[in-house]
Design a protein around this nucleic acid. Structure first.
Length: 683
DNA sequence: AGCACTCAGGTGTAT
DNA sequence: ACACCTGAGTGCTTG
């Protein structure tokens, strides 16, 4: 069986406007700072001149407020990018100062009264329905209390803050009539930031019964309201910037990137008015399990029409109108229809994941009786040949899981020899190499050396686990007033340091603030890539913001680094002092990582899966320092988190960064990441 | 042509 | 169980 998994290329390749991406994002300084919980942003260094202060080419950045990370670019590179952009239309707005760039579309009501309050008008309760012009405002919003950190934060103010911090370049990209990989990435990223931030606020406000109950909807509404979206014009066929195999965790994400406009309905179509056509045509469908679809086959989908279900009136016959009519017309017309398949997410049993499975055509349609006894329209959609695998990858993984098919090329079923809770298999289906050079698998850091003492603390006393509503929890305080992780254990926003609970805390191991301590959760595999040696990927999809693993190995000092890096050319060193390039795709990445003192980890002789992660200039994983509370010693770890949603079997990569200046004997390595934004080398 | 209003359409999360 | 938000469609108003 041929495998097409892991093409060893970044997802980005191919469909790019290369003129657009020439500009290089600035490197970021990694200034070592001894964080003090009271003033974590301070860059004053009590140790005095650290030996490795690096200066960013685009700096100097003022200490304190870091530029909103993913978007800050230097004026130079911005100008560059503008020269290089081929502007297709004359109406492109010039780059404007941030404040004026923000509102793309009109705000309906700047006070925030309008957003979200409009809906749900059709309660069939008869009491004063429809008549009143203004719906009653549900939220008595109290946004004035300026002092406290987390109580009564107005969602719209939060959104405005986030938007204000974006680089105008982002809006420039979003304003392009055609979507691009960048515009899609930015849109999803902003949505992610907004959703997580609103969720975080809601979380800590739950007692006060305020905040957005559905952060996904709230964030979506704000985005729509302000026009932060891409590909807003409906189209038949492929959507620029969205690639087959891309995955989504919210219906609003599909909407915002132009893949499927309705926030709920499963059928999207171009109406007879909006297009020049005189009949409606279907453009995309979502098969999400709400109807009795047949999804057994990877290339054929039997899809049910919409309607016929009504909460109040019960089941009824479906009618040939709206989406159903559009599908019918499309069947005759033979136009391509995008298919998004919704699946239960194994990692989050409560949620769903949506897989963009590319283009299909409707081959047949008929009416049949559903289990309810009423008529339902059925449509047979057949996948167009020659498209990359998407849904099929999920099916394969499922088969491997159920053992109804076996993974080919397995060399070792578990290279951790049971050290991890989840087996990590070693696979080679490209050549005959029998495995990477010998090493010992360890889960943790060795020779953990006490880092600089932090403020004396005995840890928290949250016996039942830290709660977002507990404003007295010292661990929450250290993180700036919020738990760093969402209820779904996603990184809520990206701080320079993450303070987790540790040995001296009284909370249980299940505490929400111990996310990086739970070990591996995903079924990873170490596999032979086509041209980059061994790499790492996951059988499971990984949602943006999820903790993946830490970097295990032996903590070594600078002298040893030089020793190893010199002659021996140690490829397995994690070096926290490197400068790394701006990632342009991370939600809420407001601060660069800061480490109390330089940290070097060698994973050559001993290490975990992280040692197999290759470099990419367009990575899908990033690292953050995590400090675990441990009396007066800070227990420092390096944790890896997903930058974006990562589909199964896609290689996991992070940015190795660059060493400036190059150490003696160190040479640059040619980068093979294949990204259009490739720097050409890494260290 | 432009706007106000209604209604279909399910989803995500908590209980 | 519960709280929602967009877009199509319809009908009325206005230039």
């Amino acid at each position: 069986m041929e495998h097409h998994f892991g093409q060893d290329t970044a997802p980005a390749s191919g469909s790019f406007d290369k003129t657009r991406v020439l500009n290089v994002k600035p490197l970021r300084t990694l200034v070592p700072v001894f964080p003090s919980p009271s003033n974590p942003a301070s860059s004053s260094n009590p140790q005095g001149g650290a030996p490795f202060v690096c200066v960013s080419p685009s700096g100097p950045f003022p200490s304190g407020v870091a530029p909103f990370y993913p978007f800050f670019i230097s004026p130079e590179s911005q100008r560059l990018s503008e020269q290089n952009v081929q502007t297709p239309t004359a109406q492109r707005v010039p780059a404007a100062p941030i404040s004026t760039a923000v509102p793309i579309n009109s705000f309906r009501t700047p006070t925030g009264a309008a957003n979200g309050d409009v809906g749900s008008s059709r309660k069939k309760d008869g009491t004063g329905t429809g008549r009143s012009k203004r719906k009653p405002q549900k939220k008595a919003k109290a946004q004035q209390s300026g002092g406290s950190v987390s109580a009564d934060v107005d969602p719209d103010a939060v959104a405005a803050d986030i938007l204000k911090s974006l680089n105008p370049m982002v809006f420039d990209v979003l304003n392009q009539p055609e979507g691009s990989r960048d515009s899609v990435a930015y849109t999803l990223m902003i949505y992610e930031v907004m959703r997580r931030k609103l969720g975080q606020i809601e979380d800590s406000n739950r007692a006060a019964n305020s905040g957005a109950k559905r952060p996904d909807l709230k964030a979506g509404a704000i985005m729509m309201n302000k026009g932060i979206r891409t590909n807003s014009k409906k189209r038949i066929g492929l959507v620029p910037g969205v690639e087959i195999g891309d995955i989504f965790y919210f219906r609003f994400e599909l909407c915002l990137v132009g893949l499927h406009a309705p926030s709920m309905a499963g059928i999207d179509y171009i109406g007879s008015k909006t297009s020049q056509e005189e009949e409606p045509l279907a453009v995309s469908i979502v098969s999400s399990g709400g109807y009795e679809d047949n999804v057994e086959d990877g290339d054929v989908l039997i899809y049910s029409g919409q309607g016929g279900v009504n909460r109040d009136k019960g089941a009824s016959d479906q009618k040939l109108e709206r989406g159903n009519l559009a599908l019918e017309k499309s069947a005759h017309r033979g136009n391509e229809v995008r298919v998004i398949r919704g699946l239960r997410d194994v990692q989050h049993p409560t949620g769903k994941v949506y897989v963009y499975d590319g283009l299909y055509k409707i081959q047949d349609s008929w009416v049949e009786k559903a289990k309810s006894g009423f008529n339902v329209f059925k449509y047979k959609l057949v996948r167009l040949p020659g498209q990359p695998q998407a849904y099929m990858i999920w099916k394969s993984v499922q088969q491997w899981t159920e053992k109804s098919a076996s993974r080919t090329g397995i060399i070792l079923p578990d290279l951790t020899s049971g050290a991890e809770k989840v087996p990590v298999c070693l696979v080679n289906d490209v050549d005959t190499e029998k495995g990477p050079a010998h090493f010992t698998y360890i889960k943790d850091l060795k020779n953990l050396r006490p880092a600089a003492p932090v403020e004396s603390s005995t840890g928290c006393s949250c016996v039942g686990g830290c709660q977002a509503t507990n404003f007295d929890c010292p661990c929450i305080h250290k993180n700036g007033g919020y738990l760093p992780y969402s209820a779904a254990s996603l990184l809520a926003d990206l701080k320079s340091v993450i303070y987790e609970c540790g040995p001296s805390c009284q909370c249980p191991p299940s505490c929400r603030n111990r996310v990086s301590q739970g070990g591996l959760k995903f079924r990873l595999e170490v596999y032979k890539t086509k041209n980059k040696g061994w790499g790492l990927r996951s059988w499971d999809a990984i949602r943006a913001g999820t903790f993946i693993c830490e970097y295990a190995g032996e903590v070594i000092n600078n002298a040893r680094v030089e020793e190893l890096g010199g002659d021996n050319e140690d490829d397995y060193i994690f070096d926290s002092t490197r400068i790394y390039q701006q990632l342009e795709v991370f939600p809420g990445d407001t601060e660069a990582p800061k480490i109390p003192s330089p940290l070097y980890i060698s994973a050559r002789a001993e290490g975990n899966v992280a040692r197999f992660m290759n470099h990419s200039c367009s990575p899908n994983v990033l690292w953050r320092p995590v400090i675990r509370e441990n009396k007066n010693e800070s227990d420092l770890h390096i944790a890896f988190y997903a930058i974006r949603h990562i589909p199964p079997m896609m290689e996991l990569t992070y940015d190795y960064g660059v060493v400036l200046p190059l150490k003696v004997g160190q040479r640059k390595k040619k980068c093979l990441c294949g990204s259009v934004k490739c720097r050409g080398y890494f260290c």
